[in-house]
Every structure is written in structure tokens, then in C-alpha cells.
Computed example of a mutant assay.
Amino acid sequence: MNKKTKFILVAASMSAGKSSLINALLGKELLPAGNEATTAKVARITVGAKAKPSAKAYSHSGSIVASSNTLCAEQMRTWNRSDEVSAFDVVIPHSGSKLHSMLAGYTLIDTPGANNNRDDRHKEQFISAIKAYPKSPILYVLNATQLGTNDDAEIIRTIRDINPRQRIIFALNKVDALDEEKGENAKHYVSLASTYLANLGYYNAKIIPLMAQSALIAKKSLNQIDLGRTERNILRTELERFREHPFHFNSAAAVPQVLKKNVRKRLTKISKGKMTEMSREELHAFVDYTGLSTVSSLIMDVA
């Protein structure tokens, strides 16, 4: 692996949407996603310039047990379930497009959920990954619909106990599932998350409201990948909300003002009705709206 590669660890409790976020950053469904513990191995995913697609699975002793020159979710799912596989490396060629150009030269390290009580190996692998990359920032995914759980607290305390200086970016995922009619708006939940994290020792935490699933669907559309009926309905519904309140999630983000201003500039055209509906320009702006662009910018800022 290139010595100049920058590593980003991605962590979360079960069902927070960690795999969906990684898939959204990549613009394709590479990792299995679901409502259970879908990540059982450490996956190292590199977006490399001048690289060919490749994937290698390693045993617990570190030897290669399988390899492939094609990248597909089914292969990743098979390795993820295999008792023979401890970890796997994936290399995705950098296409030069805007969709994942910001990840070129970065390796995302997908860690198993450390709160899986049915398999202690998950926590062991998570702790090993934290210890192996003490200087690399962590992208931690919180579930907005299950904020303040003991599972998150335990994992975050584990990170702090192992390396109290490790930098963490918090993505507050699934904000699109909040019931705004009941006062469950993004700004309020970012405030709740900020208080929760301060109680765990992380003051003035960087928190980005995020819609990982919607971001992935939009990027799949931009990549000309066919969408299923459910995905088309989700995209249509969220685009309507986006057109009505384009600055909603950006305004709620607890990040440096310069990042918010940069995204806001790109969203201004929507507020003025200057973008054609369902155009590539609008879909790119929608990705900004979901919070994914801010997550990407923060990754580059701290890595």
C-alpha cells in the first residue's frame, strides 16, 4: 500500500448506518448494509490513482486466502461471513470524477461494531484497529433515531481510554427519519448529541447531520446505476424536501463556519430556483444537502 495513503477509521454501534455511509462516500454499494451486525471483519478500502480494481482476503495469520479482480457486494458479503477470513483489502480505481475524487489517496477502514454481544471477536478486532492506527482520525456514526445509547457510550469511552488524543468526526446519521412535526429537527438533535458527547469527554465536537442512504441513492443515480422502485421513491421524496429547505441540515451542522459557507454557496442556486429538477447539477447539490460533502471535507481537513 502506498506510504502516502491516509487512513480514516470508520466506527459505530450496530445499525447506525456505517456501511451505508462508506458506500455513499464510494458512490456504490460495495459493503453489505442492514439492520443487524453486518460488518464482522476489518475492511480496508483504498481509492487509488492509477490503480486497477482488486480485492484480497486474509486469514487470521495474515496469509492471503482469496483474491479477486472484480469488486461486488456479494463477494464482500461472502468474505464477511467466512470464519477463515480476518480482514480484507479493496482497491477502487480513482476515476477522476467529482463523485469520489476527494477520496483519492485515502483508505477507509471499516471496523466491526464493538457492541456485538454475540461475538466478542468484533470488539477485539475493533480495539486492534484503534491501536494499529493511533494517529488516524475516526469517523464515528451516530444514529439520530437512537441517540444517547449505552452501546455508543461504551465504544466512545473505549476509544478515549485507548487513545484520548485521537481525533473524531461525528456523523449524526438518519436525520431524515426524524419527525419534524413533533419538534425532532436536526438542529435540536445536533445540540442533544453535543451535550451527550461532552458528557463523554468530547467538548465542542464536530457533528454533521447526515442522510447516508439518500446520499448513496443520489450518487448511484449520478453514476448511472439503475435505482430500484423504493430508491426512486426515497429520492423523489427527499428532493422535494430539499427544494423547500435547501439549507436545513447545513445550518444545523456543528462544524467550522468556513465549511458551512462553502456548502451554502453551492446550495444558493436551489433556493433561487436556478437548477433544473433532476438534473446532474441538482443531484450534486442534493449530495451537499445530505451532509456527505461536509463529511468528506472534514476527512480531508483532519487526515
Score class of each variant (00 low, 15 high):
Arg266Tyr: 07
Tyr189Asn: 02
Arg243Leu: 08
Tyr196Leu: 02
Leu192Thr: 06
Arg264Leu: 06
Pro256Glu: 03
Tyr203Trp: 11
Val255Gly: 04
Lys260Leu: 08
Lys261Leu: 10
Thr237Tyr: 12
Gly183Glu: 00
Tyr203Thr: 10
Phe247Met: 08
Val190Arg: 01
Thr268Gly: 04
Tyr202Glu: 15
Ala252Cys: 02
Gly183Ile: 01
Gln257Ser: 10
Ala198Trp: 06
Lys274Leu: 15
Phe247Asp: 11
Pro256Phe: 04
Tyr203Asn: 13
Ser194Asp: 15
Leu200Cys: 00
Arg236Pro: 02
Gly183Leu: 02
Ala177Val: 08
Lys220Cys: 01
Leu267Cys: 05
Gly273Leu: 13
Phe242Gly: 12
Arg229Cys: 01
His188Asn: 03
His245Ala: 14
Val258Lys: 04
Ala253Thr: 01
Asp226Cys: 00
Ala193Val: 00
Asn262Gly: 12
Phe249Asp: 13
Leu267His: 10
Arg243His: 12
Leu239Asp: 14
Arg264Trp: 11
Val190Ala: 01
Asp226Tyr: 00
Asn262Cys: 07
Arg266Ile: 01
Glu181Phe: 12
Glu231Ile: 01
Glu231Phe: 03
Leu235His: 10
Arg266Thr: 07
Leu210Ala: 05
Ser191Gln: 15
Arg236Phe: 13
Ala198Tyr: 12
Arg236Tyr: 12
Glu240Leu: 06
Lys187Cys: 12
Ser191Phe: 08
Ala193Thr: 04
Lys269Leu: 15
Val255Pro: 09
Asn185Ser: 07
Thr237Ala: 12
Asp226Lys: 00
Ala177Asp: 12
Ile225Glu: 03
Glu181Thr: 15
Thr230Arg: 09
Leu227Gln: 04
Ala193Arg: 00
Leu235Tyr: 13
Leu235Ala: 06
Arg243Gly: 07
Ala254Gln: 14
Lys269Glu: 15
Asn250Ile: 06
His188Met: 10
His248Asn: 11
Arg229Pro: 03
Leu239Arg: 14
Arg264Phe: 06
Ser271Gly: 15
Lys219Glu: 02
Glu180Thr: 14
Ile207Lys: 03
Ser194His: 09
Asn262Ser: 09
Asn262Tyr: 05
Ala205Ile: 01
Arg264Thr: 14
Arg243Thr: 06
Gly201Tyr: 06
Leu192Trp: 04
Ala252Tyr: 02
Arg243Phe: 07
Ile225Asp: 00
